[in-house]
Design a binder for these strands. Structure first.
Lengths: 196, 196
DNA sequence: GGCGTTTTTCATCATGTGATGAATTATGCG
DNA sequence: CGCATAATTCATCACATGATGAAAAACGCC
């Protein structure tokens, strides 16, 4: 887009969608704090004012980019329905399906990169982790559901960090089936094994 | 410090130390990107120009704040000396000692909050994780040391995230002995258990 | 006491950020 | 075809950031 005069562009360019797509990518890469409205606009090939026009404030844009494409609670239904037997493996499979699919991975990456700000930490802890852990632990009928689900989360979050955020090998490129076989027993132990 | 005229303050105030202490706290809370030089200066009760005077650029200040008080490789010596038997428990104990001590925890927190910037990610992955995992795995004489140590790291990093960065209960306030008893078997399995 | 050095603040710069409003262009309807 | 509306850029604002340099004050040595 070399010619840039004021006014509406000819045709039906879906600039709003372009902005949202750019925002999802950039927020996923650098989080809310590390992403500027101008960077999103540049990536979308528009002027920054257009971002405000369509989405309002930067925070509003961030929320739009976070819009959940796959509700984690919905994704967990197969886990819950099978009961606690074999739940470790089902959790691991669902977890990998969600994270290995870019549609759902981008907003999750953006969430995790929010740990530099108190608001972002609260969003991740209370707006996401609690929201998923609580209901699943209850639905599985676990004894000490909070404690057990937190142990499960401590392993899953570690995988998130190394495989998806930091890209540490050989974990980052490990085949999903190997990961399932590796971690399912651990998760199962956290779910129904002995607790000290 | 209500009176602020130009020039040297009377007495021997160790403003350099005050700046460094403030920097360590703020970088630990908000990372490099989320911390401004002016915020550090304000926390130390000085003018921002003094920060530059003593430490140079913001990056230089960050590196100074990261200065390792406890070399993680040194901390790992007791783990290594005992061989692979019981290494899971020893790793967990050393890990908690390091993280539950503010002196060593602050720079580590600052490191982890660097995931919003490519440079910060590289520092954490290559400048820290690789540095610790590689030698320990080799020294323990593990088969597939990289793979096994990465599995161990995936659990430890998850604990870091939930206990120290996000402060998720009941993990954040769990007594160290309970954590050791909970996680040591898992870490031991990653070290010398069967691998899929 | 004078002077050189160190410490410290003030003033300022270049640049970037989120955001607003006016001018311009394209579209679709009557 | 004219007009109202929507889309888009340009211009601008207030403020923040990392950083620099000069002015001023304190200290210690000769």
């Amino acid at each position: 887009m070399t010619t840039t005069r004021r006014g509406r562009r000819p045709g039906a360019p879906d600039t709003r969608a372009a902005i949202l797509a750019a925002a999802r990518e950039l927020f996923a890469a650098s989080g809310h704090a590390g992403t500027s409205v101008r960077a999103v606009a540049a990536a979308a090939g528009v002027d920054a004012a257009l971002v405000h026009h369509y989405f309002g404030t930067k925070d509003d844009l961030f929320l739009a980019a976070l819009a959940v494409r796959v509700d984690p609670r919905t994704a967990m239904i197969p886990v819950i329905e099978g009961g606690v037997e074999g739940a470790g493996e089902r959790i691991m499979r669902v977890f990998l399906e969600v994270w290995d699919d870019e549609e759902s991975r981008l907003p999750l990456l953006a969430l995790f990169r929010g740990i530099v700000e108190p608001g972002g930490r609260q969003l991740l802890r209370d707006g996401f982790l609690r929201m998923v852990l609580g209901p699943v632990g209850q639905a599985l009928g676990l004894d000490e559901p909070d404690r057990r689900m937190t142990l499960v989360a401590s392993q899953l979050v570690g995988i998130v960090m190394l495989r998806y955020l930091l890209v540490v090998e050989p974990l980052a490129s490990a085949p999903p089936d190997v990961l399932v076989a590796t971690y399912a027993p651990v998760l199962q132990g956290y779910l129904d094994g002995p607790l000290p």
